[in-house]
């Protein structure tokens, strides 16, 4: 041992211990981001290396094209943003409420056999997204299980994956608005008319929403359950002594204590839902009529199918920014609430 004592060789050892992780993460996380930043400023088409002088440098064109130029690229991008926004708007609340509801039932002390049900609810979230998408494709097929169930209660189910109609458009049609009002159809913003922005999620998207809520609720249920089991039981009992009913105790006692978990679940939900990709790839490839196109899938398609890697990378970075913004917004809201 050297004069430095038992910590003498830790300096070298430390670096040796982190070296494999550092090299792999550096090569496949940090370096790629830098390379993609460069490529997003070029018009590279996938031929040869993107780092030669023959590759056209286009500056911020790939970014401005998504927002400022009135053409198909912007229209597709804005459509994908719209689709994903409706998807987020439905999936995040639904999965959060379902997860919390299931956790509350499972936390009930008077029920038995709970571990079986916890396993059942949790299982879908550990299965392969591709494998489970295959199952749901079959269930939502035209003569599939979902439509068989619907017809059992007298509903004529739609042709899920070939129906591009938006839910809001369908609802308006029901109340007599069969065509787009001129005020909405003739004006718009960012390449889509107001009527298109207000379509709601398409029927096809609803099938994907169902699948995702079904698969992810289990994980969040486990988080809620862990939080519920850590709550001190005395508070609930005090509420009972004071004559509060179950509903009041839930709203006034349990829910406020679950606030940190709630914010966590919503944050993870927001981050996850803006990244939806596997299910889109397997079930719909953005169809019908681009109503299940999402930024993640559009970025993949633009790069690997249309060989426009610059635009594809630019879409990735804009998506990254969207996710960062939502996370920051969430953090900011969290701080506000805690201040009270």
């Amino acid at each position: 041992m050297s004069a430095k004592g038992i910590r003498g060789n830790e300096r070298t050892a430390g670096w040796i211990f982190v070296a494999p992780a550092l090299i792999i993460l550096g090569l496949f996380f940090v370096l790629p981001i830098l390379m993609a930043l460069w490529v997003s400023l070029t018009g590279w088409n996938g031929q040869g290396s993107p780092f030669t002088s023959r590759v056209p440098f286009v500056g911020l064109h790939n970014y401005t094209a998504l927002f400022a130029t009135d053409d198909l690229a912007r229209q597709d991008f804005m459509t994908s943003i719209r689709n994903n926004a409706y998807y987020v708007l439905l999936v995040v609340p639904l999965q959060t409420v379902l997860a919390l509801g299931l956790a509350l039932v499972l936390n009930n002390r008077i029920l038995k056999g709970k571990s079986f049900f916890r396993t059942a609810f949790f299982f879908p979230s550990v299965t392969s997204s591709v494998a489970i998408s295959v199952v749901f494709l079959f269930m939502f097929a035209n003569g599939g299980a979902i439509n068989a169930l619907l017809s059992a209660v007298g509903i004529n189910g739609p042709q899920w994956f070939s129906d591009p109609r938006g839910l809001i458009h369908i609802a308006l049609d029901r109340v007599g608005v069969h065509n787009a009002p001129a005020a909405l159809a003739d004006h718009g913003v960012l390449g889509l008319t107001w009527w298109d922005w207000l379509s709601g999620p398409s029927v096809a998207m609803c099938a994907i929403i169902t699948l995702v809520v079904w698969t992810t609720s289990g994980t969040f249920m486990v988080m809620f359950l862990a939080a519920l089991q850590n709550l001190p039981i005395q508070l609930d009992e005090a509420g009972m002594v004071d004559g509060a009913n179950a509903w009041q105790r839930f709203w006034r006692i349990t829910l406020p204590q679950l606030r940190p978990t709630m914010f966590l679940v919503v944050t993870l939900g927001l981050i996850g839902t803006w990244q939806v990709f596997d299910q889109i790839y397997v079930m719909s490839q953005g169809n019908p009529a681009k109503t299940t196109l999402t930024p993640a899938f559009l970025s993949y398609r633009t790069a690997f199918r249309d060989f426009d890697y610059g635009s594809g990378a630019a879409i990735s970075f804009v998506l990254f920014l969207i996710i960062v913004l939502f996370t920051l917004l969430q953090r900011w809201l969290l701080r506000e609430r805690r201040g009270h």
Binding site: L27, F28, F29, L31, P32, I33, M35, A36, V39, S49, P50, F51, I271, W274, Q275, F277, A296, S299, Y300, A303, F304, Y309, G312, A313, S316, F317, L319, F320, I323
Partner: peptide, 16 residues
């Protein structure tokens, strides 16, 4: 870093 954002970047590195 959201994994889905890394799809194209990872391809670039593998290619390079």
């Amino acid at each position: 870093v959201p994994p889905v954002v890394l799809l194209i970047p990872k391809f670039l590195v593998l290619n390079q």
